[in-house]
Simulated assay, not measured.
Amino acid sequence: MSAGNLYRYFRSKDAIVAGLAERDRAQMASDLSVIGPGDDFIAAFRELGRKHFEEEPRERAILGLEIWAEATRNREVAATVQEFEGDLIGHLTDMIAAAQENGSVSRLNEARDIAVLIATLADGLFVRRATLPDFDAGREVGHVLSIIGALLKGHITLSQGVSDAGASS
C-alpha cells in the first residue's frame, strides 16, 4: 500500500502508531489469556517466546524498535507506548499474583517486580531481534527463560532498590 493510500485510513503518523499499538495490545492480551493460574509458566513463556522471536517476522521487531525511538521525541507516541507497557505489566502482575496464590510460583519476590523484569528481558530480546540479522532465538530465548524459571521458583531474589544492589555485606 502506498503512503498516500495509508493516510486514507489514518489521519496521521501518530494515529498509525496508535493503531499498531492497539493491534499489539489485543494480541498480547490474547496471548497472555491462554495462560491459566495453574499452568506451567515456563512452558507457557517458552511458547510465547517461540511465537514472538521465531515465528513472527523480524520486521515486526524492527517496527517496534522504530516506534520506541519515535516515543523518545513524540509525546503522543510516548503516551501510547507507556499505556501499552502499563497494560503488559498489569496483565503479567495479575497472572503471577494468581500463580503465587495457588502456590505454583514462589512468593519470594513481588509479582509486579517479576513482571517488570520479564518485560525488561523481553524488551532486550526484541532489540536484539531487530538489530541482529543472525539473532539466535532458540539460544537467547532459552537463556532468558532459564532466568525467568529461576525467578519464578524463588532461586533469584530481586533487590528492593538500586542502593541495595551496590551494598556490600
Rank of each mutant, 00 (worst) to 15 (best):
A21M: 15
F45Y: 06
R50C: 04
L20W: 05
G38N: 15
G49R: 05
L6A: 14
R50W: 09
D39K: 00
G49D: 02
A21D: 07
K13E: 12
V34K: 14
L20P: 00
A15E: 15
R8F: 10
I42V: 15
F45I: 05
G19Q: 06
R25W: 08
M28V: 14
D24F: 08
I16G: 00
K13D: 11
R46F: 01
K13V: 04
M28H: 11
G4F: 09
F10V: 06
D40P: 03
A15T: 06
G49E: 05
S30W: 09
A44Y: 01
A43P: 03
N5K: 11
Y9T: 13
S12L: 05
G19R: 07
L32K: 00
E47W: 06
R25K: 13
A26H: 06
R50T: 12
D40Y: 06
A29H: 14
D40Q: 12
F41G: 09
S30E: 12
G4K: 09
I42Y: 09
H52Q: 13
V34P: 00
S12F: 07
P37Y: 10
A43F: 07
D31R: 02
R46K: 06
Y7C: 05
M28L: 15
E47Q: 14
A26W: 01
V34W: 09
I35H: 01
S30T: 10
V34Q: 13
A29R: 15
G38C: 10
R23T: 11
A44G: 02
D39T: 07
L32Y: 10
G49N: 08
A44I: 04
H52G: 02
A43N: 02
R25N: 08
E22H: 12
K51V: 06
I35C: 00
K13N: 03
M28C: 04
F10R: 00
F41D: 10
I42N: 04
D24V: 07
D14N: 14
V34D: 06
R25C: 04
D24Q: 11
G36S: 08
G38T: 12
F45C: 00
I35D: 00
A26C: 04
S33C: 01
D39V: 03
P37A: 03
F53A: 06
E22D: 15
S33L: 02
Q27R: 14
I42H: 13
A26I: 06
L48E: 01
P37C: 01
V17N: 04
L6W: 02
R8H: 10
V34S: 14
Y9Q: 12
G49F: 08
S33M: 02
A18H: 11
G38K: 15
I16F: 08
K51M: 08
R11M: 01
N5W: 12
